[in-house]
Computed example of a mutant assay.
Amino acid sequence: MIDQSVEQVLSASGDFPRIGGVRGKNFRGILPTGETALFLLAAGNLEKRVQLQKLFGVEHLFGRKAVLWLEDLPQGEPAMSGRIILSKEFVDLCLTGQRPKPRFGINFPAQQLETLQDWEDLVLNEMTMQQVRDLETWLQYGDVLLQDWGLAKKIKPGFRVLFHGPPGTGKTLTASLLGKFTGRPVYRIDLSLVVSKYIGETEKNLAHLFNTAENKDWILFFDEADALFGKRTSVRDAHDKYANQEVSFLLQRTENYAGLVILATNFKSNIDDSFARRFQSHIYFPLPRYEERLRLWHSIIPEKVKPGTQVDLHHIASQYELTGAHITNIVQYACLQAISRGESTITETDLLEGIRNEYAKEGKVLK
């Protein structure tokens, strides 16, 4: 349409500076710039031009919600000569009524976590479960607290929580369930695609991640967060200097993110103290006790599968200190052995062999 308008004015091919616009790399027509919008909507009306420029400002609703903006330009170029960028997500929302899911890759290094399990499948001690329920309460009523009750002037937006404890104790499942039962997508960050050995690249990757997540009400889950949120060190060389800058940058972005940020680590002591102080909640996921291990055994063994007459789950739960992840692997092994025999009964031997396999992974020997 812009090309046709230019052709009506120009008798020969060439540029039309007054209307602005640039040529795309693949698109062979004119891509509109801020100058294009001013020319078409205000022409020579200076007062109207000044008002229209506010549409592209960072304080305008379009800018705050990342709907419409002008591309960044080299220093010295007129600001309004930048291309008009309309959020692809906003376009898709207008056309289809749905927000498209971001595609996992280098530009969005996070994958959505989903689960078929329910709260009943999560076995935690009473204190940990109560803290998780408190977190669910914030997800449900945080907007009421900030907006309706007026605390937005007093506290920062969003919520930051640290999950810490041994592997296999339910940290990832808890994050998945929080999203499932509050209607929020949960994205687990792939740190291998975020952390870069090149100076400035890690911050760039993180900025793109948080910019994409902004205004979406997503839950961001940083598993094995030590790689990003580790303790800052004394500056001995340039590498230490930039590593500390990465931590400072990440601290700033997490504090400004309006949604829920979950850090998960096996060792709380590995997390930088600045993060620990600024997180509203620290939730410890300990190794399950006997009662919890027994509940895990009963909940993980499928209903169609029957333990053999010699299987004493009370004894197994008491004798072997295992996590939920361990027990899941053991039950999977035992069920496969039963299926290979053409049976629906798992034996004590199946379970003990599965336990032996799990112990062997950690360098332990089953006695």
Score class of each variant (00 low, 15 high):
L193P: 00
L193R: 13
L193G: 03
V194G: 00
V194Y: 00
V195F: 06
V195M: 11
K197Q: 14
K197E: 12
K197Y: 11
K197P: 00
G200S: 06
E201M: 08
T202F: 00
T202A: 04
E203M: 01
E203T: 05
N205A: 09
N205V: 07
A207C: 01
A207K: 13
H208D: 08
H208Q: 13
A213L: 10
A213T: 03
A213S: 12
E214G: 02
N215C: 08
D217G: 04
D217P: 00
W218H: 02
W218M: 05
L220I: 14
L220Q: 05
F221I: 02
F221Y: 15
F221T: 01
F222I: 01
E224S: 03
E224P: 06
E224L: 06
E224R: 04
A225P: 02
D226N: 04
D226G: 06
L228V: 01
G230T: 07
K231G: 06
K231R: 15
T233A: 13
S234H: 11
S234A: 13
R236K: 13
D237T: 07
H239K: 12
D240Y: 06
D240L: 05
K241C: 02
Y242K: 00
Y242M: 00
A243C: 01
A243T: 05
N244V: 08
Q245P: 09
E246T: 15
E246Y: 01
E246G: 00
S248K: 04
L250M: 12
L250W: 10
R253F: 10
R253N: 06
N256S: 14
Y257H: 10
G259I: 12
G259W: 09
V261K: 00
V261Q: 01
I262Y: 00
L263Q: 05
L263F: 15
L263D: 05
L263N: 02
L263P: 05
N266H: 13
F267S: 03
F267V: 07
K268R: 15
K268E: 15
I271D: 07
D272Y: 12
D272V: 07
D272G: 08
D273K: 11
F275K: 05
F275P: 00
A276V: 15
A276D: 11
R277E: 09
R277K: 11
R278W: 13
R278M: 10
R278F: 12
F279Q: 07
Q280T: 10
Q280N: 09
S281V: 04
S281T: 12
S281A: 15
H282I: 12
H282L: 14
H282G: 02
H282A: 14
H282M: 11
H282N: 13
I283W: 12
I283V: 14
I283A: 02
Y284I: 02
Y284S: 08
F285Y: 15
L287H: 12
L287T: 15
L287S: 14
L287F: 14
P288H: 08
R289P: 10
R289E: 15
Y290N: 10
E291H: 11
E291L: 13
E291Y: 13
E291R: 14
E292S: 11
E292T: 07
L294G: 07
R295C: 13
R295S: 14
R295I: 12
L296P: 01
W297Y: 06
H298N: 14
H298Y: 11
